[in-house]
């Protein structure tokens, strides 16, 4: 990558644009490096998953603490029925999406794999992680530029999203088998889950706790991506909307 100064546009760079013929220097425009990071399936999956999680958290909370009782005949309402229906519909979208995302880890680019493991044995990873922590503690001004996820983001994503999300799917389908019966495919595939977690009620309990882990993750996630987008050396949100990540400088550290 070139030194920052050479990125200032020259007259020649304006050739063929609407500014052709103008002097470049007074524009003080710079050429920025942009990398295509998140491919379309990843981006589509991200926003689908975000939407389904919002639905899952709202309906899940209401399954645990239903709204005040409705009056009138039971036959004229289906409130809890709809809440559960929405939960299950969103759950299917989330679960199938998750499966698709796993498949894409094998088919997509190198950044598509970052979500599913952390490079535990690489010293570089721990250094980057410490760097990011220092940035968030206001000790350091800037961390390294990163093309995929930075080490801190990757760690949080892996534990609070990937593992927790998988746990929600596994416990969710185990709970689902209560309704479909032990001989249904859910019962046969996920029947081991509830005895393993200490029974049916304990599974509800842990599934409920998983929701709070994910809610806290999403709060922090939305804050950090917005903050990084404004303050770090690279753009974030565009990487998840159009796929391109732009670097604000090309300094080599």
């Amino acid at each position: 990558m070139s030194a920052p100064d050479s990125a200032i546009l020259t007259d020649g760079d304006l050739k063929g644009t609407n500014l052709d013929g103008l002097k470049a220097r007074p524009l003080r425009a710079r050429r920025l490096t942009t990398v295509y990071v998140y491919e379309a399936p990843v981006r589509l999956w991200h926003w689908m998953t975000a939407a389904s999680i919002v639905v899952l958290a709202v309906t899940g909370y209401l399954i645990g603490s239903p709204p005040p009782s409705l009056s009138g005949e039971a036959s004229s309402h289906f409130q809890m029925g709809w809440i559960r229906y929405l939960h299950f519909a969103a759950a299917w979208i989330f679960a199938v999406g998750f499966g698709g995302r796993v498949a894409w880890a094998f088919m997509g680019n190198v950044y598509a794999r970052e979500l599913f493991f952390i490079p535990f044995w690489k010293l570089e990873y721990w250094k980057e992680l410490l760097d990011e922590v220092l940035v968030y503690a206001f000790v350091k001004k800037h961390a390294k530029t990163v093309v995929g996820h930075n080490a801190l983001a990757r760690t949080a994503l892996f534990f609070c999203f990937t593992l927790t999300g998988l746990f929600m799917i596994v416990t969710g389908f185990a709970l689902y088998s209560d309704g479909t019966g032990i001989d249904s495919w859910e019962g046969r595939v996920f029947g081991w889950v509830m005895p393993w977690l200490g029974g049916n009620l304990s599974t509800h309990f842990l599934h409920h706790w998983g929701m709070w882990v994910i809610i806290l993750f999403v709060m922090i996630h939305v804050y950090t991506v917005s903050r990084e987008d404004i303050m770090s050396r690279q753009s974030l949100i565009s990487a998840m909307t159009n796929g391109y990540r732009t670097f604000r400088d090309d300094r080599p550290d």
Partner: peptide
């Protein structure tokens, strides 16, 4: 034994329509 323990109380409870409707004893 599956013949007696394969369903929950909730699956055959006669108050279940109130559950689905959203009508609860508070």
């Amino acid at each position: 034994p599956k013949m007696f323990y394969s369903q929950r109380i909730h699956d055959k409870c006669y108050r279940r329509p109130h559950f689905d409707a959203g009508q609860y004893v508070e």
